[in-house]
């Protein structure tokens, strides 16, 4: 009897493993080996369209594998091929590359290699680049150097960083503007909001990445997800598939970028913006607290793209992730842009 039970358990395990989800069957999956890091690349969606959107994820230290969990990117995959990849030390990347030389240039170099690989494997398709948050900054750094932008038909900057010191101040303004209201709100956590005021008094010029507190403040003001419950309803997470039948493993929860992030604090890719001339869609959540919409104004102003070919769209009831908060509007805006410039 005991033997039978064990055999049944074994069969169940093996059957479970054989029952593959879309995470293991859809698209092409390969790795880029560069400078000690092994970066996973997932090309998913409508490859036959000949239009490839290369994503660049946020963080630093998050994962490109989060994009396809959102409804916004699921919609996009129906029309175009979308390239998801993880940066070094992040998400499902592997390897133990040298940590003595973590620079923005290294991340730009990785981005360049991913683009070259996609061009080579898919016969020089029509390319768009989409950077989110830190990925917006990284993609600007990449596109604005060595005429990389000329490889692309367009750039989609999704709530993207650009100039660390400036953003920290814009973020401060965005937060402090709302704190008095919170302090006066009935039933609010007054001690917390007073702490926010005190913290900024003690840190008048915070660092963009090294200081973590402002990100918690922004989160408390729904600056990451406009309405968390609604966002969860719109983008249900398939936990069972992710745990038992996907490429995800517990390693996903370990970011190697855990120590000093001062290398990213003072980044200013405004000069690179001035070199980007391709059509650009700047898509921002009006309630983004991590990279507030005023940063979008700054990017729009400094981007060298002719006015006719650049647009800044600020989305209502939307925070740092339009693809989660407002997937239909995100999809509609991106498709309209891609269709115009592909």
């Amino acid at each position: 009897m005991k033997t039978h039970s064990l055999l049944l358990l074994l069969c169940a395990l093996i059957f479970g493993a054989c029952n593959k989800s879309e995470f293991l069957t859809e698209g092409d999956y390969f790795h880029l080996d560069h400078n000690g890091a092994k970066l996973p690349v997932w090309v998913k969606g409508n490859v036959d369209s000949g239009v490839f959107i290369i994503t660049v994820h946020g963080g630093p230290g998050d994962s490109g594998h989060e994009f396809p969990l959102s409804k916004g990117f699921k919609y996009l995959e129906e029309d175009y091929a979308v390239v998801y990849w993880d940066q070094r030390f992040s998400g499902l990347s592997q390897g133990d590359p040298d940590d003595s030389n973590i620079t923005p240039e290294l991340f730009i170099e990785d981005t360049e290699k991913v683009v070259e690989l996609i061009r080579h494997r898919y016969g020089d398709p029509t390319l768009f680049m989409l950077g989110h948050s830190w990925g917006g900054q990284l993609s600007a750094g990449y596109l604005g150097r060595d005429d990389h932008d000329q490889l692309f038909n367009g750039w989609i900057d999704l709530d993207g960083s650009i100039y660390g010191a400036l953003e920290a101040q814009i973020m401060k303004d965005w937060i402090l503007e709302q704190v008095p209201g919170k302090l006066n709100e009935e039933g609010s956590d007054k001690a917390f909001w007073q702490f926010v005021l005190d913290w900024y008094e003690a840190h008048p010029a915070p660092d963009n990445y090294t200081d973590q507190e402002p990100y918690f403040f922004a989160d408390a003001l729904d600056g990451y997800a406009y309405d968390w419950e609604r966002t969860q309803e719109l983008n249900p997470v398939p936990y069972h598939e992710l745990i038992f039948s996907s490429m995800f493993s517990l390693a996903y929860y370990v970011s190697g970028l855990t120590t000093d992030q001062s290398w990213a604090d003072d980044l200013n890719f405004t000069p690179e913006l001035a070199q980007i001339t391709i059509p650009s869609l700047l898509l921002w959540g009006k309630n983004d607290g991590a990279v507030p919409a005023a940063v979008g104004d700054y990017v729009y102003e400094h981007l060298a793209t002719p006015i006719a070919d650049k647009r800044l769209v600020k989305i209502d009831e939307c925070s740092h992730a339009p693809h989660y908060d407002q997937p239909e509007i995100f999809y509609q805006q991106v498709v309209e842009f891609v269709e115009q410039y592909q």
């Binding site: 092409d28 390969f30 080579h120």
Partner: peptide, 29 residues
């Protein structure tokens, strides 16, 4: 000893942009 598992393989991109197959082997841990 881990080996990269992606059904389409591993690639390296050289300085000049040339693409070649890479090794699936990570360093032993």
């Amino acid at each position: 000893q881990t080996m990269l598992n992606g059904e389409d393989g591993v690639f390296e991109v050289g300085e000049d942009g040339t693409v070649r197959r890479g090794s699936v082997f990570n360093q032993p841990d």
